[in-house]
């Protein structure tokens, strides 16, 4: 555990809490892509199956359970509790265009051809693209509420900090996880355009981020 990794995990946690609290307080999930949230719940579910097979640390186990619980709570709020506010007309990204290639790739490129390894690889590849329905929705409507952009900022920050963590681990313990690093870098690139808009628009006091 290093400071980048811990800060990355905290950013991830903050992002998910921001989203949950926003939906809960406003009793609305307007502007939030339910599809992205279902994909994230699927990411956590397929990655954390090792909760049943190996024990790494109390921190590891607690964080996994918290991420799982919060991602399912988010999906519940969007599709059940506040489904009247769910903006399905703008959440039209075709998820099968992500799932089919990701399933195919996870069978082709994995550390071992076993169910747990393939599912873990699937979760890594899927996480890299799971935010796309959300970014697509913002592009389609042309705007995002500032709380939604804070959520995306902390998600992107989490990814950037994980890259710093991998650089650190590579130099200190010669740790290199090829699948995680390559898809992690790809995932971070998706946030770059958003980061630029976030800094130039949201941080200058706009209530909403309006796309140019």
């Amino acid at each position: 555990m290093n400071v980048f990794r811990l800060a990355g995990d905290v950013s991830h946690l903050v992002a998910i809490i921001i989203l949950l609290v926003k939906i809960w307080r406003s009793k609305s999930c307007a502007g939030i892509s339910g599809k992205s949230q279902v994909l994230f719940a699927l990411v956590f579910t397929t990655r954390y199956l090792d909760l049943f097979t190996v024990f790494i640390s109390a921190y590891n186990t607690i964080m996994k359970v918290v991420f799982l619980a919060m991602s399912y709570a988010t999906v519940y709020l969007i599709y059940m509790r506040f489904r009247n506010m769910y903006d399905s007309e703008n959440d039209t990204f075709r998820v099968e265009f992500l799932l089919v290639p990701v399933i195919g790739l996870s069978f082709l490129e994995n550390y071992a051809f076993t169910p747990l390894e393939i599912l873990w690889t699937f979760s890594i590849f899927l996480e890299a693209v799971a935010i796309m329905p959300q970014l697509f929705m913002i592009t389609k409507t042309g705007e995002a509420e500032s709380i939604t952009t804070h959520y995306l900022f902390f998600l992107g920050l989490y990814r950037a900090l994980y890259i710093a963590n991998w650089v650190w681990r590579y130099h200190t313990e010669e740790f290199f996880d090829q699948i995680a690093v390559v898809s992690g870098v790809v995932q971070t690139i998706f946030y770059c355009d958003f980061f630029y808009l976030y800094v130039t628009r949201v941080l200058r006091g706009k209530a909403k981020m309006i796309l140019p």
Binding site: I56, N60, Y111, F175, A180
Partner: peptide, 10 residues
């Protein structure tokens, strides 16, 4: 070739 790392990251 690829080898399995301990999956200690989240």
């Amino acid at each position: 070739s690829l080898h399995i790392n301990p999956k200690d990251e989240l």
